[in-house]
Amino acid sequence: MADKSNDPVAIWQNMIGEMEKGFNSFANKAMESPEFSRVVNQVGGVSAGAQKQLGELMEKYLLTMNLPSRAQMVSMAERLQSIEAQLNEIKALLHQVHHNSGAPDGGYPAAPRPPRTRRPPSSGGEQK
């Protein structure tokens, strides 16, 4: 196999790595300047305000069109996630019930917790 210095693929990968480092380093130097901070914050301040106004405008527009807004979709997604989490809980409980199917008539006991007696390996405890 050719050594790395003559392997075109290795040369290409090395070049990408070096370019990444070089550009990051150059950009970081540029970003340390107060001018950069001033420009970014001017642009950012304006765009954050504009984005907020645009968002509110869009929300009103979507409401008029009888369509859900992004915030409503995100909220719905979160509710779905919460329902999924609860379903997982139910699945886990069913799983537990299935495991304890020989449980007494009084109901199904919660899964027993292991004892809190573990000792570190150096003091004679065993690493399991």
Partner: peptide
């Protein structure tokens, strides 16, 4: 945290204006 310091330079970064206008700071930011 030099770059974060520069991004939030108090001379240019108006945190009050940002928070008052957007509420929660968006994840994109």
């Amino acid at each position: 945290m030099k770059l974060f310091q520069n991004f939030s330079d108090r001379r240019y970064f108006d945190v009050d204006r940002l928070v008052d206008s957007v509420g929660n700071v968006p994840p994109e930011m």
